[in-house]
Design a protein around this nucleic acid. Sequence first.
DNA 1: TTCCTTAATAAGAATTATTATTAATAAGTT
DNA 2: AACTTATTAATAATAATTCTTATTAAGGAA
Lengths: 155, 155
Amino acid sequence: METNREKMLEEKIDFLRTMCKLKGMRVTPQRIEIYKQVANSCEHPDAETVYEAVKEKMPNVSVDTVYRTLASLEEMDMIFRVDNQLPKARFDADKTPHHHFLCVKCNEVYDIFLEPDEKIDLPKNAERFGEIKDINVQVRGICNKCLQEQINKQN
Amino acid sequence: METNREKMLEEKIDFLRTMCKLKGMRVTPQRIEIYKQVANSCEHPDAETVYEAVKEKMPNVSVDTVYRTLASLEEMDMIFRVDNQLPKARFDADKTPHHHFLCVKCNEVYDIFLEPDEKIDLPKNAERFGEIKDINVQVRGICNKCLQEQINKQN
DNA sequence: TTCCTTAATAAGAATTATTATTAATAAGTT
DNA sequence: AACTTATTAATAATAATTCTTATTAAGGAA
């Protein structure tokens, strides 16, 4: 079981290898492992979370390597940062277009995928400001989990 | 001249006074000055910028006061943080609904105001995740200023 | 007005998140 | 197998923010 997911992950890593070669970057086990952690998580992990996870497999990986590698993966468009209002950067390897629900209570980030027919249109004035790379809708609110906790507290 | 803008600022500060009283918070000169700086700027200043500006008028204001006050102003919905991908929080006092163009080169934040008739609709699935407070469209790209600089460099 | 309570402040230390420095290591090429 | 140099680990440094504590001053009560 989970073979499908594992296969997809392997494909992604193959793509990373290709991209690295293309850009003259070396394929190091650290780079692969760090990418794996982001690609295999749905939780938009921050650098420290990635570091802790990688350390399980590579006990003497350094924090710096994680930060540096996350930055290089971002530069090669393999991962990107999720906009948020916190001091911690959070990363996402899912390149399929989607948006985010940010919980203002627990800071959890949820993926919002669009329906097949759906399309969010740009603000008309957006183009005035320069060359657009991408558009991201951030929906902020209180997530169901936190709403439930609020209710529980009241009793 | 500028009387109109000054008048509007005074109105905003009156509203701040009212809100403070309502919430049992004291109206201190620091709080007013810090709010003034954010409310009177179009540049989505970060905490340090606010600190430097306030220091002009109140030379021994502390950094901590600025951070603490910005947080309390945010909590009372007088200002809010602009989502971004940088370690620095940036603040905005403009409560009229608008979106942001973030330059990936210079990190400048531009306001995108909607046309009178325009309306950005929520992703259909957004409501599944919880109670929505607000929606913000982040358009990322390279701003005109940076595009121009790129062109200049090529010559 | 003066006194009193306590929220808010200044100063500076402490934390947290991230980045830089440097010597050693190891990809990938020759 | 040797070589070049990007990448790494270790650790120091920096940047952004938050905490601690003693002091001050808002705003209500006397």
